[in-house]
């Protein structure tokens, strides 16, 4: 063993960053885990239940929190990574507040931002009462109460899929992968709060690609009576009674359709986080057409950047669910351990 163990800076304390930090720490590597918020956990903190099994997100957060407490991890909240410079075999990492670290390798796990739904102007988010995002609905679930701004329990709700995904108008050609299953999960949960609610999912395609997702979709139809209408909503407006009017094409009937709902939930897509984007720009990291960080190889190097010693984990590279994020983070940790070993700085 070398006298000083290797040191890795991890940018981002969400599921990916924490999982990778934990694995690195357990193999004897010192980790500085930098998180912009005061608490670790990232987007998971705002989510109520996870799909497909609707487990409480706090269970995953508590698993992650246990990892952070490892003695080899130095958790620095309220700080960001602003820039990474390569100096020979090591890296100089500059933080947002002007601090600096020297690292043998850097892992970027800066995650995603939710699509800002006000950019889809025609859905009236931020303008009409009771047009909310999927993330805001999770908060309502957590608080145990789904109510309109007027304090009424909604009896009819719409869910709009693909808000900010598969949409050239907002510059996002890609599918965010998780919004369909989120809509299905949330529709079912709404029914548990409001048993007689009528719920309509407006979708372009149902992309239920994950394990047990399709089964969840079937359950939503069979046991919860959720209605699915194939058609992208084109416009939202309000009636004189302040109910939301949804316009879409019912593509399977081949005719336009309109209906009024009490509440509309927008399935916000995922975009590379603002912090990740800035870090990539400052550090000369490549991004793809989808603006996410571009990996060195799509098939066997998705954890590697094109700069030797800088690695990626999680949703900074593409939309990913928690399961895949954690696997991806483990892959990143394995890559880093390999890299440090091969460059003679780790023999664990």
């Amino acid at each position: 063993m070398p006298e000083m163990s290797a040191h890795v800076v991890v940018a981002g304390g969400g599921a990916a960053g924490i999982e990778a930090a934990g694995m690195l720490a357990r193999s004897g590597i010192r980790v500085t885990l930098i998180e912009k918020e005061t608490e670790p956990g990232g987007h998971l903190k705002g989510w109520y239940h996870l799909f497909p099994d609707r487990r409480d997100s706090r269970e995953v957060i508590s698993y992650l929190s246990r990892l952070i407490s490892h003695e080899n991890i130095d958790f620095i909240p309220g700080e960001t990574v602003a820039k990474i410079d390569r100096k020979g075999l090591s890296f100089s990492v500059t933080t947002g507040k002007g601090g600096s670290f020297t690292a043998d390798a850097v892992l970027i796990a800066t995650g995603f931002d939710m699509f800002r739904c006000e950019r889809k102007e025609e859905y009236g988010y931020g303008i009409y009462d009771n047009v909310i995002t999927s993330a805001e609905l999770e908060v309502m679930f957590r608080n145990g109460e789904i109510k309109t701004v007027g304090g009424i329990v909604p009896s009819k709700l719409g869910m709009i899929h693909c808000v900010g995904s598969r949409d050239e108008k907002v510059g996002n050609l890609y599918c965010s992968k998780l919004c369909c299953v989120t809509a299905v999960k949330q529709a079912m949960e709404i029914k548990e709060y409001i048993s007689d609610a009528r719920i309509f999912c407006f979708y372009m395609d149902m992309r239920m690609g994950g394990a047990m997702y399709e089964e969840l979709y079937r359950e939503a139809q069979e046991k919860y009576g959720i209605n699915f209408i194939r058609g992208k909503v084109s416009e939202v407006s309000v009636s004189i009674d302040n109910r939301l009017i949804v316009k879409s094409e019912d593509t399977l009937a081949g005719r336009p359709l309109k209906m009024e709902v009490d509440m509309l939930v927008l399935m916000a897509g995922m975009e590379i986080s603002d912090g990740g984007k800035k870090l990539a720009l400052a550090s000369g990291l490549k991004t793809g057409e989808n603006r996410f960080l571009a990996s060195a190889d799509n098939h066997y190097g998705s954890n590697r950047s094109h700069i030797s010693g800088i690695f990626y984990a999680g949703t900074c590279t593409a939309p990913m669910n928690v399961t895949d994020t954690i696997s991806h983070a483990r892959g990143a940790a394995a890559e880093i351990i390999d890299y440090l070993r091969n460059t003679g700085r780790h023999n664990g």
Binding site: E118, E121, G124, Y125, G126, I127, Y128, D129, V238
Partner: peptide
């Protein structure tokens, strides 16, 4: 209608 949101888009 909440005018604040409309102002932001505008």
């Amino acid at each position: 209608m909440e005018s604040e949101g409309s102002e932001r888009i505008w």
